Simulated scan of single mutants.
Amino acid sequence: MIYLGCAGWSISRTYAAQLAGEGSHLQRYARQLTAVEINSSFYRPHRPASYTRWAGAVPPGFRFSVKLPRAISHERRLVDCAQALAEFFAQCTALGSALGCVLVQLPPSLAFEPLLVERFMADVRKVYPGPVALEARHPSWAEAGPLMEQLQVALVGADPARFALDAQPRGWSGLAYWRLHGSPRTYFSDYPSTWLQALAPQLLARAEAGAATWCIFDNTAGDAALGDALELQTLLGN
C-alpha cells in the first residue's frame, strides 16, 4: 500500500470537479486519495471526538498522519515532554485503526543528540507503539540513520533537501515517508510531470520491499498539492 495525499484535505475550485460528489471535503477527498496529513495538530489540540468523526468519514483503507504539536518539538525541543505526549496521544489515537503514522517535524536549529532522541522515544513508546516519522532539518542529522533504524523511527525524505542524504527516506526500513514542500518556491510551486514520473518508481520500490510507504505533498499555499497528488496517483496506477 502506498499512502498518498496532501497536508490537509481542502478542495479548491480547480479540482472540485475531479473530487465531486456528496459529503464533506474530507469524504470527497478520501474517495480519491489514500492518506492525509493533519498539520493543524501542530498548532492546536483537537478533541478526541473530532478525530473519531474524521475516522468515521473515510473508507477502511484510508490513513491519517498526525503532526506532533510544536509545544513538544519546538518549544520543549523534545525535553521533559512525557505529560504533553500523553495528552497528545490521548487525543489522536481516537482515530483508531485510521491512525497510520505520527510525524515529528523538528526546528532547523535542533541538532542530532543521540541521548536526547533515545529519551524522547522512550517517552513516546510508553503511550504509542505505532509508526513514527521524523523530519529533521539540521545537517547533523545526516549521521542519525543507524540509531533511527535501531529505534524503529523513519527519517523523512524531503524536497527541497536541507542537507546531505535529506532527499531520501532513511532510518527504519519499515516506513518510508516523503514530504514534498514544493520547489523552487517552497509551499507554492507544483512539480513538473517529469519529476513526478521519476518519483513514482521510487515509491513503488519501497512498497514492494515491504515498507509502509507515504508520500505527502505540503505545497499547499495554493492548490499545487492536490494537483500533484492526483497526477502521481495516475502515474502509480492506483
Rank of each mutant, 00 (worst) to 15 (best):
V36G: 05
E37L: 09
I38Y: 00
N39F: 00
N39L: 05
S40A: 15
S40C: 06
S41L: 07
S41G: 08
F42S: 02
P45M: 02
H46A: 10
R47D: 14
P48R: 06
P48L: 06
A49F: 03
S50Y: 04
S50R: 05
S50D: 14
Y51W: 10
Y51S: 07
R53T: 11
R53G: 11
W54A: 10
W54P: 14
W54H: 09
A55Y: 13
A55V: 03
A55L: 08
G56W: 03
G56E: 09
V58A: 02
P60M: 05
P60L: 01
G61M: 02
G61A: 07
F62W: 04
F62M: 04
R63P: 14
V66M: 09
V66R: 05
V66W: 08
L68H: 07
P69E: 01
R70I: 06
S73H: 04
S73T: 15
S73D: 09
H74I: 11
E75A: 13
E75Q: 15
E75M: 11
E75V: 13
R76D: 13
R76N: 12
R77P: 12
L78Q: 03
V79G: 10
V79T: 14
C81N: 08
Q83I: 08
Q83M: 10
Q83A: 15
A84L: 13
A84K: 06
A84S: 14
A86C: 03
A86W: 03
A86Y: 04
E87W: 08
F88D: 12
F88H: 09
F88R: 05
F88T: 09
F89I: 01
A90F: 03
A90K: 07
C92S: 05
C92A: 07
T93S: 13
A94L: 01
A94C: 08
L95D: 02
L95M: 08
G96R: 03
S97A: 09
S97M: 02
S97Q: 12
A98G: 07
A98F: 05
A98T: 10
A98H: 15
A98R: 15
G100C: 11
V102A: 02
V102W: 05
V102C: 13
V104N: 06
V104K: 09
V104H: 04
Q105R: 00
Q105F: 11
L106P: 09
L106I: 05
P107R: 08
P108K: 00
L110H: 07
L110P: 12
A111N: 06
A111R: 12
A111L: 07
A111C: 10
F112T: 02
E113T: 01
P114V: 02
L115Y: 05
L116S: 03
E118I: 06
F120W: 11
F120M: 08
F120A: 12
M121P: 11
A122Y: 03
D123F: 01
K126W: 03
K126T: 12
V127C: 14
V127N: 12
Y128F: 12
G130L: 03
V132D: 09
A133E: 07
A133K: 00
A133D: 08
L134R: 00
L134G: 01
R137M: 13
H138W: 12
E143F: 13
E143M: 14
G145M: 06
L147M: 07
L147D: 11
A154Y: 11
A154K: 06
A154Q: 11
V156R: 01
V156P: 13
V156E: 09
G157D: 02
G157F: 04
G157C: 00
A158L: 00
D159Q: 08
D159P: 08
D159K: 02
D159W: 04
A161E: 12
R162Q: 15
F163T: 00
